[in-house]
Design a protein around this nucleic acid. Structure first.
Lengths: 209, 209, 209, 209
DNA sequence: CATGAATGAGTGTTCATTCAT
DNA sequence: TATGAATGAACACTCATTCAT
């Protein structure tokens, strides 16, 4: 009997699965309509449960969004950690892979809402209120900042650039409008776009020879 | 006595001033709370007028936002055109100045809402509905794309990069979260940030020697 | 200088003409849209004057309606009186002519709104509030009741029928829906309809032989 | 245990009762104040429920009115059909009973609003929009017209009178103002009034001997 | 007098949240 | 635990009425 990770029972498992389904539906609806236009009713309907049931899992609409944010951030963090943990690769190689990750399949499923939410003024209040969200985001960004600093220390990246500026720009390489313009409208492959962006970015921050 | 450009006199002047005040207040509130959380009541209260008066100038909340978008885009377009029209400067120099413009004083006053709105999923519907908004935005982006193509043709920028990718990244150099992180939180000067970003960006897209 | 009936001057004449124009427009709009859907703005626009000007003539929307009611009732009363005053005709002949009057050209111009208003529950409050309106209406109905009583006394009409019942039915011979059904939809001539209605009504109330 | 006619149990029953209560209150308020002056708030208050609850049953104020209209028309139709279906009675006898029905107890409960609405110009738009309402009304009138034609064919009624004229007048025998004048103000018994009206009407349309 | 900009109370409607079943 | 009916606060929008010009 594995003590902590395993659910207390079958009930608990059911519960988590349902929670995942709700988050899934919520992501879809938030993505399609935005936070305010999305209604709990529609989310519940997509899962096939009653509205009240959503409230058994998430105490409010805000918390539902926060949970979504948390889930997505944690997944991204996990993947980033995995990439960062691989030994024998340069910071640039790691960051490049992370960029491909963010811009690739993941973008469709996780990062899109996430990014568009993060830029919306409507989320300002939320981010301020939910300390948790901010903390998660900081965990991710500080990990990335660590990689950038690592690259600078290793002589890969220009040491005169403030790491925070490099970080900020790295985060902005991925954007919803950019994705729409380049991938959806112009038909470029995500991987291709990511390659171009990486090319520009890493050339831009490369150490002066 | 200017016959046609001048408003029909005092009444018209009053009207335009009032309209500007409403747009000003709307910008503030939309910026602080986002479109949905902003209420016409609050906007009116900040101007010190009655709710109904807002509707004498803008037929709906949506139209108010569109007018704001229009006003801001037009101002940015005007400034961009002015910069682009100066002869004897390279595309890079022009774009660099535009970046400083976008990141400088203007950012606080005009571009902030604008950028954050543009990234919000909630605006999707609006942008689709208000053809006008889309058209204005396209006018701006195509002007920038022109400058980038010009730089490529002149051998300044890497001709192998798709112009649209360069454009997309140029637009993403400026971001609300970036501004908050670097300027508000870390205390960097906007001009300094703009200089770093320009350095990275233009080095990144520079023609291979 | 004629003392009372004549307007004090040219100004007064202008005033009355304008008032008539407003009533005219109000009648049209009330007729088309009903009291609540009609807006002072539209009425003013049809006259070609400003909204505020309407209030120089009528202190409120309610009063405007009351004035309209008064104007129409007075005109109908005048015509009814004229018909009733002609000597040498039976009560039936007089009432028949009144019916033709109400159902004919007049219906289009004056009585329509009037009738539909009178049946609307929305007018209940108004009628209660504006004593004047009630008084005018009573003047008209009592005149008609007088003719009916006269006919009964003369042996033309069945004396066993309560005069008020005869009156009530006489008033209901004319109706907006009836007009619409018979004249507008089925294409019968108003005079023809009036003739049929008169035939039925007067045969129905005729004295038993 | 009736399988299909019975509601899905207690819940459904509750629902229908609540719906009936809302319709009841709506009828009262619409009757007293007319459509526009009636507010959903007041209707809800009279039922003792929250405003939002009304919207769980009727999607809009307009639909609430339409449902009311439908309920009333259907009830009248049902009663009319029942009367018309009885064999061995003349058309006149049937129509006379229908008249008593419309003028009697039913008038207070169902037909009053109905009649006054139908004559109001404000309802024009509604009737045009809600096809359903028009259809119901037509069903009722065509049933009555059928009885009138039947009477003509049987030699009871004057065959030279257009059936539509007879129908129109039959409908106008009942009226809100007439009821108020004769029953409320003059204290006549509804049945008595109906008897008088029937006397006049059927004598008026009787076949010439 | 005429104007029409300004007002602000009033209303239909939505929807996150609660709670009795 | 799941349900979904009920709630009620919130908000966009309208329009009769007023009043400074």
């Amino acid at each position: 009997m594995p003590p902590s990770t395993a659910p207390r029972s079958w009930k608990e498992k059911q519960r988590q699965e349902r929670e995942a389904l709700i988050l899934q539906a919520a992501e879809e609806v938030f993505c399609e309509k935005g936070y305010h236009e999305a209604s709990i009713d529609e989310i519940a309907a997509r899962v096939g449960i009653a509205k009240g049931t959503v409230y058994l899992h998430f105490p409010s609409k805000e918390d539902l969004l926060a949970a979504l944010f948390r889930r997505d951030t944690e997944q991204v963090i996990a993947e980033v950690e995995a990439i960062a943990a691989v030994p024998g690769r340069s910071a640039r190689e790691k960051l490049e892979e992370i960029l491909h990750l963010l811009y690739g399949e993941l973008f469709k499923k996780r990062t899109r809402l996430f990014y568009s939410m993060y830029n919306s003024p409507e989320m300002g209040a939320l981010l301020a209120k939910k300390e948790q969200m901010h903390a998660h985001w900081e965990q991710l960004t500080s990990r990335l900042e660590g990689l950038l600093a690592e690259g600078q220390a290793a002589g890969e990246f220009n040491p005169e650039l403030p790491t925070s500026v490099m970080l900020s720009l790295f985060l902005n390489l991925v954007s919803v409008r950019g994705y729409e313009r380049l991938v959806v409208r112009e038909g470029l492959a995500p991987a291709e776009v990511a390659r171009y962006l990486a090319h520009i970015y890493f050339k831009g921050i490369a150490a002066e020879h």
